[in-house]
């Protein structure tokens, strides 16, 4: 670092006054880097993912090996998080369970975003017939009985984790696209949007460069909160034959299986519940940090 404080301050100011030297993404990254809470959350998420990937190395027991003699064993030194109704080690099942649950949760949200964001942007920004068409289709999806869809899907293509992700994404599309569309509507006539149009940007460029960054806040909120919904939907769908089939461990299903034992074997549901909350909390905090970092107004604010 420069020796003189005065000098360094000047450098900083100069840098910020000349954004050409740092791309918006670099700026965002550096802002994100200063948000310690967000970094911690990101590290936690990464940690959970690493644990899941490295499950075979970390799990103390085979997660699907039954041991009826040791069933419903309370947490102890032997079984740190206890055992379930079949005597399987809960810790090992939680470690392995992240593989399915994190994948389902994250992939569902990403797929919803990939499909929902463009739909919402197009509907909101372009408006007119296209808007009407997209939104009415979304209304139909909302009203369609999901359970019938699930029964049909499983009778047609059988069980599988990817089917759950597909179902999750399909049925959360209306929410994503509607929320985004609503936000787009409020800003599409803002000065900077009109200005960029006047400067000759085509619709795609306007949507991507000017509208999208300004509707990030609600996007981040719904996507970070819907991770838990997606994971839990995985559990319920596995009851209908979609999703990870037993004995594959999965947090949502573990939570559901533990429910009858709520008063006699509390550990069955508590630990998967904590994992679920941790994921959502971490993705929320990381999401908030991301929003702050990407907020176009933040640069003016802090300059």
């Amino acid at each position: 670092m420069p020796t003189s404080t005065l000098e360094s301050d000047i450098t900083k100011i100069e840098l910020k006054d000349r954004p050409v030297e740092k791309s918006p993404i670099q700026l965002a990254m550096s802002r994100f880097g200063h948000n310690r809470l967000a970094i911690a959350a990101l590290i936690l998420l990464a940690f959970l993912i690493v644990i899941s990937v490295a499950a075979p190395l970390l799990a103390p027991y085979n997660p699907i090996k039954r041991n009826i003699a040791d069933r419903l064993h309370a947490p102890s030194l032997q079984y740190i998080l206890g055992t379930d109704a079949l005597g399987r080690d809960s810790l090992s099942r939680i470690i392995y369970g992240g593989r399915v649950s994190l994948w389902v949760g994250l992939a569902s949200v990403v797929l919803s975003l990939v499909l929902g964001v463009p739909l919402g942007l197009i509907a909101g920004y372009l408006g007119g017939l296209l808007d009407g068409a997209i939104m009415r289709v979304m209304d139909l999806i909302l009203a369609f009985p999901g359970i019938i869809f699930a029964i049909w899907l499983v009778s047609m293509i059988g069980p599988g984790v990817n089917q759950v992700i597909l179902a999750n994404a399909l049925f959360s599309l209306p929410e994503y696209s509607r929320v985004i569309r609503g936000s787009v509507l409020t800003i599409k006539d803002a000065d900077y949007v009109s200005a960029s149009r006047a400067l000759g940007c085509n619709s795609f460029q306007v949507m991507w460069r000017h509208i999208f960054p300004n509707v990030l806040a609600p996007i981040i909120v719904i996507s970070s909160l819907s991770i838990s919904g997606a994971i839990l939907a995985g559990a319920s769908l596995s009851f209908l034959g979609l999703g990870a089939q037993p004995p594959t461990p999965e947090w949502g299903a573990m939570l559901a299986d533990g429910r009858p034992y709520i008063r006699t074997a509390w550990w069955l549901a508590l630990f998967p519940g904590i994992m679920l909350t941790l994921v959502v909390l971490a993705s929320n905090i990381a999401g908030d940090g991301l929003r702050d970092a990407l907020d176009p107004r933040a640069s003016t604010k802090r300059a």
């Binding site: 999901g146 999750n168 959360s172 839990l232």
Partner: peptide, 8 residues
Amino acid sequence: SMALGACA
């Protein structure tokens, strides 16, 4: 349907 749908 709601469980599948709105991720609320």
